[in-house]
Design a protein around this nucleic acid. Sequence first.
DNA 1: GTGGTCTAGACCACC
DNA 2: GTGGTCTAGACCACG
Lengths: 142, 142, 142, 142
Amino acid sequence: MIITLDPDSSTPFYEQLRNQIVLGIATGQLEPGEKLPTVRQLAEELSMNPMTVNKAYALMKQEGFIAIDRRHGAKVKPQLKASQERKELPPRLEQELQLLIAEASIHGMDREGFQEACGRIFARMAGGIDQDTDSTEHQTDG
Amino acid sequence: MIITLDPDSSTPFYEQLRNQIVLGIATGQLEPGEKLPTVRQLAEELSMNPMTVNKAYALMKQEGFIAIDRRHGAKVKPQLKASQERKELPPRLEQELQLLIAEASIHGMDREGFQEACGRIFARMAGGIDQDTDSTEHQTDG
Amino acid sequence: MIITLDPDSSTPFYEQLRNQIVLGIATGQLEPGEKLPTVRQLAEELSMNPMTVNKAYALMKQEGFIAIDRRHGAKVKPQLKASQERKELPPRLEQELQLLIAEASIHGMDREGFQEACGRIFARMAGGIDQDTDSTEHQTDG
Amino acid sequence: MIITLDPDSSTPFYEQLRNQIVLGIATGQLEPGEKLPTVRQLAEELSMNPMTVNKAYALMKQEGFIAIDRRHGAKVKPQLKASQERKELPPRLEQELQLLIAEASIHGMDREGFQEACGRIFARMAGGIDQDTDSTEHQTDG
DNA sequence: GTGGTCTAGACCACC
DNA sequence: GTGGTCTAGACCACG
């Protein structure tokens, strides 16, 4: 799995890293139970500070995406998808989605168009591809 | 329109403010052309520094959501919704949506469930209500 | 001659007004010696404060574009174009042009392209038209 | 690179600063990728408030002239000139140029003379010199 | 040590 | 009275 960091982005490195790993999990590039590189390996590979990688890992652990074992390093949580059957968004995501929909709607997009866009993204995700998906942070604004 | 700020959130004040006003515009609580409070008024009302309100206003101006008039202060841009007919998300939103969908999908939500959730949010938005919408800043993550 | 003011522009009204009149003089829509509306007339016509119109007139008088006669009101200076034969830019314009060229060059435009653009604008100007020339301030950036 | 601020100018400090840096980029005094002083350094050097320098940097970042890196401060955007081949001015510059040409033409300058002046400025710029270029802020008009 | 954010208080241009 | 600009000084997130 390829990870690229944009130093010009306003999004901090640890968050860029976390975002891309989460994306990797969702697309299936990283499978449940799969081992992640060690903090030092990944830090070396990306030429970044181990502390920063560590922060990303700690964040994902706290969010429940990965499990950290002192002996075997970090791995994607095995029972991720199956864990919950409820069709409800966590409040944080619900809120983010609401804001996102607000902006989209102001930009003239209606419900159907938005749901279509969601459908497209889900489709891309299911494939587990990286064709259009250089989903780093490009908003060099903040 | 009620605005509440969460000092414990990692989201800076000016951004919290911006988010809530954008939400207000999308829900119709703030109509196109409607006057916003002056920088000083809002600053006083929220017990914050005028510079911070100023920053939020400047941001929304730059984003095209509001117009600032030297004489009468700021107002919601009149021709917002009608402007574009294209059914495409701006790249920044597309990318954010992708990440959001990734997280939702990891939490076990499938395409249908997600689109339903979007539908519900759109419905709430169209009404311009605040029944279920305590969509303030809850992410006390900072 | 049509004058339009953009209240959302960062350019102050008096300057927008001055710019459009200067443009009118250059394009020949306003001829040397031609009488301008009185401050009050123009203020009424544009629904703006007479003080603001007055400021624009005073500025143009100070710049040498118009002459103000207490009895007959303001008029475009008669001997404008003929006055100087020298092919030199006033320092203020030279400096502004330099900055403008700097930005254009950074955006990838070379000397030829820039001179072409100048040629086109001169051509438009000579015609004395208002086809493409709604040269108000549109940069609602503040 | 020497930067001088004119406190008597009507142009705000942050804009004077931005203008001179943009000029420096165009003339080659500041090369693509080159590091800019930190906000604090430059503020100290110019005896001004860091916030003001910050504002200038933020503006140039938003305009795409520089990139800001959390670790090493700001640097001139690397791929500036090569980006676009089109020979078109951005509308804002086109409009400014039109007004500038209007004023020049009123001062008796014709198309040829103006294009010559542009040529001279381009030449000076390409050299990356500061022989005749005391093109600081002279407009003590505020 | 870097930029980002926030506060407090002041002055000015515009209208 | 409005927003725009500037200063001084402080704290925090990031790396």
